[in-house]
Nucleic acid binder design. Sequence first.
DNA 1: CTAACGTACAACCACATGGTTGCACGAATT
DNA 2: AATTCGTGCAACCATGTGGTTGTACGTTAG
Lengths: 111, 111
Amino acid sequence: MVARITEAELSRVFRALADATRRDILRRTLLGAVSVSGLAADYDMSFAAVQKHVAVLEEAGLVAKLAAGRERLVRADPEQIARARACLDELEVIWRHRLTGLDAVLSEPEE
Amino acid sequence: MVARITEAELSRVFRALADATRRDILRRTLLGAVSVSGLAADYDMSFAAVQKHVAVLEEAGLVAKLAAGRERLVRADPEQIARARACLDELEVIWRHRLTGLDAVLSEPEE
DNA sequence: CTAACGTACAACCACATGGTTGCACGAATT
DNA sequence: AATTCGTGCAACCATGTGGTTGTACGTTAG
């Protein structure tokens, strides 16, 4: 298990994921740390707009910034993504529970 | 595989998931079809507000309504939830790809 | 030292969101 | 037939969101 997430934080995470640009930033920063201006170069919007997207991802805990000289490198946090996934997994469990009538599914011996 | 989803629809799905009330409605309607007023009774807000939440879920394809006399029964669509999950899975694949350096991960022999 | 770069942040704008109330309409009850 | 119930929808309001430009400030380069 990846440690329980609050409903409010879950809302922030899904909110952050609800934008194509932010999902793309997440993909790029999963491959490796990228500076904010490095990210901004790839999108047809102002630097400040990209900066705001990064801030939304950061507040959701999906991304962290580390200082490197005058640059801030952005890197994704796979664990927070896993937490969002766990929420969707839970929904699937509810659905399967309804179909099969099993009660035993509620104990989760995961990771 | 559950059929490809567009980026715009994915945004709508995550947006719909980014609200605790809507996630709760999703959980309730995964267990079985519930009327809109049946749902509204459980939340501390107006009927119209709940109706709007259902509409957001419906536009995201996470829920469908079926007519039953004067009531509209709301039931969740597990496949659409699976599509959102698939997006997060893809992110995890990107991350693992970065760590292991594997290229073979991109072929997905899933369902 | 000065200039250029990368970042941060504030102000502003148009539009979306989440809530409200009120009204209209078809279906069920009496 | 009249009423009540469940729903849908429009109007309205406060606040949030995604974008812009402009300014300020620390860091690197000349």
